[in-house]
Amino acid sequence: MLAVTRPLLTTVALVGLFTSGAGAALAAPAQEPGPSGPGTLVSRFDNGSFEYPVARANSFTTYQAGQFIGPWEVTAGAVDLVDDGLWQPAEGDQSLDLNASDAGAVSQTFTTTPGEAYTVTYALAGNTAGGPALKTGQVRVDGQNVQDFSFDITGRTPTAMGYIKRQVTFVATAPTTTLTFASTVGSAYGPVVDDVQVTSCSCPC
């Protein structure tokens, strides 16, 4: 992982309920398959909906620390890439459970312009197959926690995941930035993230 200076950070609160396929979304870069592996740096944020590689049909594929999901590196524990035959994604055909057997984390490093503000928007839900009911985790920028998140799975089902949309804004201080989603749940049933988008904006956002 590239070493970069920690940025000045501003958090933005929960912005409301998210329904798959409904409502206006922030513009996102095209999500095209690209290179992955140690030392790979994408020039733009990519694969925010975890659409590649393809997970096992009607099931999931587990990725361990050090493995890659496109440009995303699993940086702690293990995670599950989940097909829409197992549960409802927020966008596209796949989503990511941040817990496989225990808490996991994924990171992506991409180019940024120092001094420019960026908004990270994502859809959040939880694995309904087991407890705890409250799924928790963190959004990190260059290793610094910029937002704690939580999702209560009470009343949710695989066909009605109840995604909510969250966002957080940071100001880049280096030509590269590493974005991380990390679970803080100690079980095999973690928070689920999908439809991650990163957009630049003029300050103040």
Rank of each mutant, 00 (worst) to 15 (best):
Y189L: 04
P7N: 01
G85K: 07
Q167P: 06
L124Y: 03
E51V: 03
D93V: 06
G37P: 02
W87I: 00
A117N: 11
T62R: 15
S183P: 04
S183N: 07
A182K: 13
L134F: 00
F50Y: 04
V120A: 09
F68Y: 15
V168P: 04
G126N: 03
D195C: 06
K135Q: 06
A105D: 02
A25D: 14
F151P: 04
P35T: 13
F149P: 06
F45R: 05
A125Y: 01
G37F: 01
P89F: 06
V193T: 10
A76P: 03
A129C: 00
T169M: 13
F170E: 02
A13Q: 14
W87Q: 08
G162W: 08
Q147P: 01
A65H: 11
A30D: 10
V4A: 15
P29L: 08
T173I: 00
V146A: 08
C201L: 11
L2F: 10
Q147F: 01
P7T: 06
Y52C: 00
M1D: 09
D194F: 06
T62A: 14
P132W: 08
F50N: 01
P204C: 00
T184D: 11
V74T: 09
P53D: 08
P33E: 07
T11F: 10
F50S: 02
P29Y: 08
F181V: 04
Y118Q: 09
G48Q: 08
R6D: 12
A182T: 13
D194E: 05
F60H: 13
E73A: 14
T113L: 11
T199S: 14
L134D: 09
V12H: 12
F68P: 04
V15R: 15
F151T: 11
S59F: 12
P71W: 07
A57G: 01
V146P: 02
A100H: 12
T40S: 05
P158Q: 02
F181R: 04
A55E: 05
L98M: 04
Q64P: 00
G190N: 05
F45V: 07
G23R: 10
P204Q: 00
S150V: 02
